[in-house]
Write a protein that binds this DNA or RNA. Sequence first.
DNA 1: GGTAGGCTATTACAGTCGTCATAGGAGGTC
DNA 2: GACCTCCTATGACGACTGTAATAGCCTACC
Lengths: 192, 192
Amino acid sequence: MQQVDAPRERIVAGAAEMISRRGLNATSIRELSKHAHAPLGSTYHYFPGGKGQLATEAVRFAGESVARSLRRELRVGPREGVAAFLALWRDIVTGTGFRAGCPVLAVAVEEPPPGDVPEAVLAAAEVFADWERLLADALAAHGADEVQAAQIATLIVASVEGTVAMCRAQRDTGPLDRVAARLDAIIAAVLR
Amino acid sequence: MQQVDAPRERIVAGAAEMISRRGLNATSIRELSKHAHAPLGSTYHYFPGGKGQLATEAVRFAGESVARSLRRELRVGPREGVAAFLALWRDIVTGTGFRAGCPVLAVAVEEPPPGDVPEAVLAAAEVFADWERLLADALAAHGADEVQAAQIATLIVASVEGTVAMCRAQRDTGPLDRVAARLDAIIAAVLR
DNA sequence: GGTAGGCTATTACAGTCGTCATAGGAGGTC
DNA sequence: GACCTCCTATGACGACTGTAATAGCCTACC
């Protein structure tokens, strides 16, 4: 068992990728099935919750995969961890010819239907909070005071998300480079 | 002439608003016409370029309206200008119950069809660059060195865009507050 | 061999989309 | 009054959407 390309995982990963490129609303289940080489029928079989469930799982999938890399790289130090965080996004943006961004941001940016908040948006909120916590803990563990650590962690996540979008629009990594330089200086100044 | 609610302007403003809520792809011309109290026929009359033209003009409209406020507030000083910039977005987010964000970001986050870059994305790039320039100039004029000014200007725009999306997902202004505090400290430290 | 159950293929549904064409009306100018 | 130009109304088109139901296959166990 546990074969690498279990269709279910392939579909979720494909959903994350497609959402990161075209946004949630432009990602249709039909095209997604084609892109993941899965039949439309089985997509609804694996995700009876429909598009909402698919979006939720895609957000969590992408969030956890970034968090894993963040946890690993933060162990060598906050500055190195943040540099790796930036590099990760830089690779995504350049590796796709400025076509892909962050799927978590993509679902965060669609209006909830009046009344309730869709599950996928809640998942996006959790992912952002998770990344912030990882960063804040690493900063605090290296001598930053708690309040500043939390502020800087939010600043890092927010500026990375924004920068990725700016790079896509401008088709240039200049924004990412400038933000990387400044964030590193900010972190260095606050560590003991 | 020059009546305030010229239908054309109403449509553009409505497009900016709808895009800032639901994203570009989920904004249909039919619903937009209804929302702007304009007939579908006249929407195509005023914007023969179709949805692309509408998106482009909406991005430029929103970009210029933010730039105007930024120019005004930056005249009293960089710290005050940035505080007003943050406050502006804060009002948008809270005033809409966390439903609206930035229309410029929203169009920047949709994959261009293979081959060419749609005009609206180019407009988004220009708007971002415009905001950056305004901020960088103000910082440099108050004693920041040129390179740092450019880096910080990008950091401000990027973190604001990201923070707005985070606030929407988390349905809380905490991220905006933390980023505002940290940005102010960063700017204060770099001014002469 | 037989049978049950998880997966796939196909088709249908009711909507909405962007876009266009065409016909109507309102207003001003000769 | 006639005319011409700008705006509006209506309806049609083909394509696409999310979702569901149905019928078939294929594999694993008894």
